[in-house]
């Protein structure tokens, strides 16, 4: 038995305006708050897990500079380190809100296509995919490096490569999703295999075609590998926390409620 509203056109217009403003605000607030929470936790975890490696790498870098006969101002380095560590949590919050903004947009547009009817599951599912597409895959080509790796002269070139690969990965994932949702008929598993095949093929070619990171590595490889694992661990945790927080808040405040009341 469908739910029916008996309203005049005029009443309907008022209704629509109110509903729109009610939906937009919780949507924005949920998106920003969940990014801030996940980013704060990321900053705190990084202070414990990633900072020791950054300290170690900067120590090695400084020793190398001293041996090379450069004038090193140790006080200045200590001062910078305090400033940098202080920025870890603030940096985490900015990074968190930045990614949650993107996450919120993708979630809003893809919510109806995401699996299950549970918003928490939907959010965690989407967060896992975005972690894979926007962090894991780019890191396979251009992995995270601690300080002491990376020549200042090549920074803009490396930023270009990194952004290029990131954008290819994101755009291919979007395109693959659009293709299976709009153009392919069939079972879910068939659709998923097609999406994975498209994404995998494009990323494999991009991986082979894109030039490597040009910088030489001059500190022990063990330190770099451990740093990369620490980075992958904390960023993956960040995405998990973001998905969980966002999904929990969404289930609680239901910014889509307007749609749900009437779309029976």
């Amino acid at each position: 038995m469908p739910l029916v509203f008996h309203v005049t056109e005029n009443e309907l217009d008022n209704e629509v305006d109110n509903e729109l403003s009610m939906r937009t605000l919780p949507f924005l607030v949920i998106t920003i708050i969940s990014g801030a929470i996940a980013g704060t936790i990321l900053g705190i975890i990084n202070l414990g897990i990633v900072e020791p490696y950054i300290d170690k790498a900067i120590e090695l870098e400084t020793q190398k500079d001293i041996q090379a006969g450069q004038n090193v101002n140790l006080d200045e380095i200590v001062g910078y380190r305090i400033w940098q560590k202080g920025g870890e949590i603030v940096g985490g919050i900015i990074y968190g809100i930045s990614l949650s903004s993107l996450f919120g947009i993708v979630f809003a547009y893809s919510r109806n296509s995401l699996p299950t009817s549970n918003d928490k599951v939907k959010a965690i599912f989407l967060a896992s995919i975005m972690c894979f597409v926007l962090f894991i895959v780019p890191a396979l080509k251009y992995p995270a490096n601690p300080p002491a790796v990376g020549a200042p002269e090549t920074i803009y070139y490396r930023q270009g490569l990194f952004v290029g690969f990131l954008v290819i990965s994101g755009a291919t994932a979007l395109a693959a999703a659009a293709i299976i949702l709009k153009k392919i008929d069939g079972t879910t598993s068939k659709k998923i295999s097609i999406a994975c095949a498209i994404y995998g093929a494009v990323m494999l070619v991009s991986y082979l075609v894109m030039p490597p990171n040009p910088d030489k590595i001059s500190i022990p490889i063990d330190l770099i590998i451990t740093f990369r694992f620490a980075s992958a661990l904390t960023i993956s945790m960040f995405w998990g926390i973001l998905g969980l927080t966002f999904g929990t808040l969404w289930s609680k405040f239901k910014p889509h409620k307007f749609e749900k009341i009437t779309a029976f």
Partner: peptide, 18 residues
């Protein structure tokens, strides 16, 4: 200053730096 402030998060999140 801003670069240095977000510097450690930049490394940890896998952005190119240095």
């Amino acid at each position: 200053w801003l670069h240095e402030f977000t510097h450690d998060m930049r490394h940890a999140a896998g952005f190119p730096c240095h």
